[in-house]
Design a protein around this nucleic acid. Structure first.
Length: 132
DNA sequence: CGATTGACGTACG
DNA sequence: TCGTACGCCAATC
């Protein structure tokens, strides 16, 4: 393959296209949308949300999306999202280190040592409970 | 611009 | 069952 043209053409490559920006925003919003659907007094996991959105191996991105969850309207109940073991791995991202546990306690969820008690029963799987 | 770092989860020995 | 490796990918160093 021969590329014609003797000029040294320095093309400016956009760092991010509008489409990419849209998909990113869409992914974030999808995460937020699912989290808002979590019933009060129930919890789910980052992986379950990722799986539900079709990106089963990008559970980390769900956690990353939660980073901005505090500044999003309407409010996102981020405290209802824990890791797959029912551990409150995101507690340090709340206003105080005990805020997440307090919010869960308000909904009747018992937390001991950063672990959701009776996690298996309270677990809410969007892929199973929702059928979109 | 390459390396490192996570609110994670699965695979493998 | 436990520890390690790796995929994921935006952000940060």
């Amino acid at each position: 393959m021969v590329i014609a043209g003797g000029e040294n053409l320095l093309l400016e490559i956009p760092t991010m296209t509008a489409a990419e920006d849209n998909s990113l925003e869409s992914f974030f919003n999808q995460v937020y949308a699912v989290v808002r659907l979590i019933p009060k007094g129930r919890v789910t996991s980052y992986g379950a949300i990722a799986k539900y959105l079709g990106t089963a191996r990008s559970s980390r991105m769900v956690g990353w999306a939660m980073n901005g969850s505090h500044t999003v309207r309407p409010k996102v109940p981020a405290h209802r999202v824990v890791n797959r073991n029912g551990l409150l791995t995101g507690k340090n991202h709340f206003s105080t280190s005990t805020r997440m546990e307090e919010l869960l306690a308000q909904e009747g969820i018992d937390v001991k040592n950063d672990q959701v008690q009776d996690f298996k029963r309270l677990y809410w799987d969007p892929a199973a409970e929702l059928a979109i």
